[in-house]
């Protein structure tokens, strides 16, 4: 995936999330949703370094990961609307979507729940002598779950082809990392498991892409797992009810200045790889794509009530 495509994809995610935010605000959508506004570079940068045949596991904040792995915005939006055309046919919702054909093994409503799942997928790959890798997204909060320790240890012992990508957005809901870690860098934990660990500027798409590419290459060569800590920031609240009382508006403004989309856009403009007109056109095209997704979702039917009783067992 080249940088222009990455730029386009980041806009797709941003506009998708802003639309979802609007819909939760005006009551169009019910339930809850966790938006990744401000974290687009980790999603897109990581997936840009993967092959289509590689796998990704995601989190409760998974719309961006799914779109970056090739998810169709129409089917994502339809799922948020609870419609039969959604990825989970309305049975999953925001935190419970998957498309195995795209290598997207699922968002996950349990913090840290995807970490052993990703590790097990890597075990299946290794057993078959395949060259795929698994990229496991999780947040700083999940790094304090017990399964983080168990899974990373297992992956290191068995040299599994998995990349653990911690999106450290500084807050587990409202609780800051300084209150939940006694170490300055989450990546430092890698040493305890005997795997490489790196801290990366998570708002720098190219830095994320390069770090994941290197980790993927090592994993494909049998070199085992890597822990990457991508430092980033969600520019919106944890979920729709969050009034952001735990952080200052000044801090938010500082991070807004480091907006990953602006950063990549400015870099591309400076390098002459993008013009202002092209940038505006990309944004307009993606806005249209999201409007089409909304129209698709609105027009789609809900499953009949009796279908709620089906499909518990294979």
């Amino acid at each position: 995936m080249d940088l222009l495509e990455c730029y386009r994809l980041m806009w797709r995610i941003r506009l998708f999330e802003e639309k979802v935010d609007q819909f939760f605000g005006d009551g169009t959508l019910r339930g809850t949703s966790h938006l990744c506004v401000g974290q687009e570079a980790t999603a897109v940068g990581a997936c840009a370094a993967l092959r289509p045949t590689d796998y990704v596991t995601s989190t409760h904040r998974g719309h961006g990961h799914f779109l970056a792995k090739g998810g169709d915005p129409r089917r994502l939006m339809a799922e948020l609307f609870g419609k039969a055309t959604g990825y989970s046919r309305g049975r999953g919702g925001s935190q419970h979507m998957a498309c195995y054909a795209l290598g997207f093994l699922g968002s996950n409503g349990i913090t840290g729940g995807g970490i052993p799942i990703a590790t097990g997928a890597a075990l299946a790959i290794q057993r078959r002598r395949q060259s795929h890798v698994v990229l496991c997204f999780f947040g700083d909060g999940a790094a304090n779950q017990g399964v983080f320790h168990e899974a990373l240890n297992l992956a290191a012992v068995w040299k599994l082809p998995v990349i653990y990508l911690c999106e450290n957005n500084l807050y587990a809901m409202s609780t800051p990392v300084r209150a939940t870690f006694a170490i300055p860098r989450i990546a430092a934990r890698a040493a305890a498991y005997g795997m490489p660990g790196h801290t990366v500027d998570g708002n720098d798409l190219q830095a994320v892409r390069d770090a994941v590419a290197e980790a993927a290459s090592r994993a494909r060569d049998g070199g085992g797992p890597t822990l990457l800590e991508c430092q980033t920031y969600r520019l919106v609240g944890h979920s729709k009810s969050d009034r952001r009382v735990y952080r200052t508006r000044e801090e938010e403004e500082e991070w807004r200045a480091r907006d990953p989309i602006l950063r990549l856009g400015n870099a591309l403009l400076a390098a002459g790889e993008l013009t202002e007109a092209q940038a505006a056109q990309i944004r307009e095209e993606e806005a249209r794509e999201i409007e089409e997704a909304v129209a698709f979702a609105r027009q789609s039917p809900v499953l009949p009530a009796e279908a709620a009783l089906e499909g518990v067992y294979a």
């Binding site: 052993p116 097990g120 890597a122 075990l123 320790h149 297992l154």
Partner: peptide, 10 residues
């Protein structure tokens, strides 16, 4: 937890 989770992922 990790082993059962790995088994689910596999």
């Amino acid at each position: 937890a990790g082993v059962v989770g790995l088994a689910v992922g596999a």
